[in-house]
Simulated scan of single mutants.
Amino acid sequence: MNKIEIIAHRGASAVCPENTMIAFERALELGATGIETDVQMSADGRLVLIHDETLQRTAGSEGWVKDFTYDTLRTLDAGSWFHADFAGEPIPSLEMLFNLVQGKRILLNVELKNGIVPYKGMEEKIIQVIREWNMEQQVVLSSFNHASLVKCKRIAPDIRTALLYMEKLYRPYDYAAKLEASGLHPYKLAVAKEEVTAALAQGIVTYPFTVNDPGDMELMMDMGVQGIITDLPDVLASLMTARTRSANIGIK
């Protein structure tokens, strides 16, 4: 079978608090070949990894990410909500994640969370940091804000982009090609085998999200996707190993 990217959604978020360094490190230990994370901006323009625009759910604090400085955000506890064992786990910066994966054969899917809060200058800042860390070949920028991805592509044509979407789109591969995106990241229920095939014919890969049920993983693989975004990278890795073993036995 063809190689499928195992992309850990917010890190190994089934067993660790999402979007923390311990979740990213654990994802690699569990067999992930890629990490997906969410980026927002602090009040002083630093790039921080957190999903929600507000701090309540994962950092136990009132208010919005955008209203606090980086130093203040770093003092918050982003682990206790998940389990007491992770108490004191801080919100990381994008640079910390780059430091973890730089030079490794790990794909980094950075989702721009700028659909609700229109972070001014986010695209330029992210690309600047990518350049500083020489991560152009490892990073894919994704977002539900497709206008933002077009802006990224205009600034940095060499950095890959991927379109996130929830609903069925008509000929999504043509839409992606028009936006010069190299990937489609559809919600798992919006995936169709013929569209995966048509996209690949245009050099566009399909990585559905968030696929946690083993049966759904099998279905996505049967549809020919090139990667799967999951909270359970170890489960996906095991399924892929079993498939490869079965295929090899079949050849013999």
Rank of each mutant, 00 (worst) to 15 (best):
Lys3Val: 10
Lys3Gln: 15
Ile6Asn: 03
His9Trp: 07
His9Arg: 05
Arg10Asn: 03
Arg10His: 08
Ala12Trp: 02
Pro17Phe: 08
Thr20Gln: 09
Glu25Asp: 13
Arg26Gln: 15
Ala27Leu: 10
Leu28Cys: 07
Leu28Ala: 11
Glu29Ile: 01
Glu36Ala: 03
Glu36Ser: 05
Met41Pro: 08
Ala43Val: 04
Ala43Thr: 06
Ala43Cys: 06
Gly45Arg: 09
Leu47Pro: 01
Leu47Phe: 07
Ile50Pro: 05
His51Glu: 07
Asp52Ile: 04
Glu53Cys: 10
Glu53Asp: 13
Glu53Tyr: 13
Thr54Cys: 04
Arg57Ile: 00
Thr58Ser: 09
Gly60His: 12
Trp64Thr: 13
Asp67Pro: 11
Asp77Thr: 12
Ala78Ile: 05
Phe86Cys: 08
Met96Gly: 10
Met96Lys: 13
Met96Ile: 06
Met96Ala: 14
Met96Val: 07
Phe98Val: 01
Asn99Asp: 15
Arg105Glu: 15
Ile106Lys: 00
Leu107Phe: 02
Leu112Thr: 00
Lys113His: 02
Asn114Met: 03
Val117Trp: 02
Met122Cys: 02
Lys125Ile: 06
Gln128Val: 00
Glu132Ser: 12
Gln137Ile: 09
Gln137His: 14
Val140His: 01
Asn145Ser: 09
Val150Tyr: 10
Val150Phe: 09
Asp158Met: 13
Thr161Lys: 01
Ala162Gly: 15
Leu163Glu: 00
Lys168Phe: 10
Tyr173His: 10
Tyr175Ala: 06
Ala176Leu: 05
Glu180Ala: 14
Ala181Asn: 03
Ser182Lys: 04
Gly183Val: 05
Leu189Lys: 14
Glu194Pro: 03
Thr197Ala: 14
Leu200Trp: 12
Ala201His: 11
Thr206Tyr: 01
Tyr207Met: 04
Val211Ile: 13
Met221Phe: 04
Met223Pro: 04
Gly224Gln: 03
Val225Met: 08
Gln226Trp: 08
Gly227Ala: 12
Ile229Trp: 07
Ile229Pro: 02
Ile229Cys: 11
Asp234Glu: 15
Met240Trp: 07
Met240Val: 12
Ala242Asn: 11
Ala242Glu: 15
Arg243Phe: 05
Thr244Gln: 15
Arg245Phe: 06
Arg245Pro: 00
Arg245Trp: 02
Ala247Asn: 13
Asn248Gln: 15
Ile249Thr: 14
Ile251Met: 11
